[in-house]
Design a protein around this nucleic acid. Structure first.
Lengths: 157, 157
DNA sequence: TCTTAGTACGACCATATTGATCGGAGATCA
DNA sequence: TGATCTCCGATCAATATGGTCGTACTAAGA
């Protein structure tokens, strides 16, 4: 339950990759193209392209056309929150259908609905959570899993 | 994004209703049947029936067969968490596909995946959130919306 | 004991969402 | 000017979901 879509997954991976290249030690400031990311993470290239397009349209990254083109973060990694990324791809956060009802629309249950208020609270908490986490937190803060050692792999049974 | 299913919605409504009847002032201890809930909240009866069956199978409520039959909470409202209810209906919480990978299964991206660890953290936080909220919190804590006044009803057109 | 109101259960269909694919147009650099 | 790349829209297939139907089983009451 509460699963996020593959597209959102891809978006997070791609952004993390772009950020780590851009601010990494090896080739800082380098432009990253779709193909590179797709191959690195085994993502269908066309789908990834579409995801990146959306991200660029929403101002998360900026695109550079032509050969030697590619993508660059539009802002610093610290200024891009997980909430922003997810909402770029999947639309506004909404635990329940009636989360962003405009006036005039009502769900069939609204009249006697008894769970709307508490659910909105939950939703708000989740939103806080995702807003307080940035791309930067996904870079250095959390060590990547190292499943290189045979022993570690054996444990997972 | 992160929407919960209609079924889960219905489950929450139904349980809230059962709890409020069972522990309310009017007819405490009364058994509630599917039809009553379905009519009260405009839920398709057959679908609600299925939801209630699942809830009963998962030990959230107990069913009483035959005429004058219906459903009763299996435990006190305080002992039933939102997380339990949602998981009963939608299966285990999993922000991402690789949340509960068994041995041998790997997502195509796993090898170089850079977002697994931070995402699992997020997931854990959400789980905490849902586990700390119980059915009881949905009863008294949050005042029900009262739109009984004719003016308010007239708006819905 | 028989009838009837109710739940239990499983198969089924329609539709919406999502993942994935294809093709052409515009931009940039060699 | 040609090759390489992003951009953008249309489209298809697979899956998940919401919703329906029919039948069997159980218990209360006449």
């Amino acid at each position: 339950m509460l699963k996020i879509s593959k597209k959102a997954d891809y978006a997070l991976m791609a952004l993390q990759h772009i950020a780590s290249v851009q601010f990494g030690d090896v080739t800082p400031g380098r432009v990253v193209n779709t193909k590179e990311i797709a191959e690195e993470y085994n993502i269908p290239p066309e789908l990834l392209a579409k995801v990146l397009q959306v991200l660029s349209k929403n101002g998360m990254i900026e695109s550079h056309n032509g050969p030697k083109g590619g993508y660059l973060l539009a802002r610093s990694a610290r200024q891009i929150t997980i909430a922003q990324i997810l909402e770029s791809i999947e639309g506004p956060l909404g635990i329940t259908d009636c989360s962003h009802e405009k006036e005039g629309e009502f769900c069939m249950q609204r009249e006697h609905c008894n769970i709307r208020t508490p659910l909105l609270k939950v939703q708000d908490s989740i939103y806080q959570l995702l807003s307080n986490m940035t791309l930067e937190d996904m870079l250095g803060g959390t060590p990547l899993i190292t499943i290189q050692s045979p022993s570690a792999q054996g444990v997972e049974r």
